[in-house]
């Protein structure tokens, strides 16, 4: 019974099933932009929402690694999934971000990334291939995440 469900959900997700950087999102000025603008860099894509506690905890760490590895070609892209943009702006006022913030209110990109929990993070190497993904944010695993990024940056 389980297999049928899997098949159905895959088909429903449409062509762009696998996570990739070829997706359309909105930037702070509400213009449609593509994630491919970060191609060539090591990209840490993070899906978050204003109501999610662990997401709030991950921002300071993302700030740190963005400042630390910016000039080695790291791009942290946090994609907000709130349907009400006001909530996202309120969150950003309280929890500053010095990395790129994008918006995907319809959640279609999140659906094609098939998130298992919130937050969810995906690591792309310089060739734009997905190499790693994590669910949730745990302070004691942050060093592990950082090491994975450092290895990607060295490639």
């Amino acid at each position: 019974m389980k297999k049928i469900w899997l098949l159905l959900s895959l088909m429903a997700a449409g062509v762009q099933a696998a996570p990739s950087l070829d997706h359309q999102v909105f930037n702070a000025q509400n213009q449609a932009v593509s994630l491919s603008e970060f191609k060539g860099k090591v990209v840490y894509v993070d899906f978050w929402a204003s109501w999610c506690g662990p997401c709030r905890k991950s921002f300071p760490w993302m700030n740190e690694i963005q400042t630390k590895y910016q000039d080695q070609g790291l791009a942290v892209v946090a994609i907000n999934l709130d349907t009400d943009n006001e909530l996202a702006q309120e969150f950003l006022k309280q929890v500053p971000a010095n990395f790129s913030v994008r918006f995907n209110p319809e959640g279609d990109v999140a659906r094609s990334f098939d998130l298992l929990g919130m937050p969810s993070s995906f690591m792309f190497n310089r060739q734009g291939q997905l190499v790693q993904h994590h669910v949730g944010f745990y302070a004691d695993k942050a060093a592990e995440y950082e090491q994975e990024l450092v290895n990607l940056l060295k490639e």
């Binding site: 302070a139 004691d140 942050a142």
Partner: peptide, 8 residues
């Protein structure tokens, strides 16, 4: 302390 060694 073990939980927080990542950041410091």
């Amino acid at each position: 302390s073990s939980l927080k060694t990542a950041l410091y």
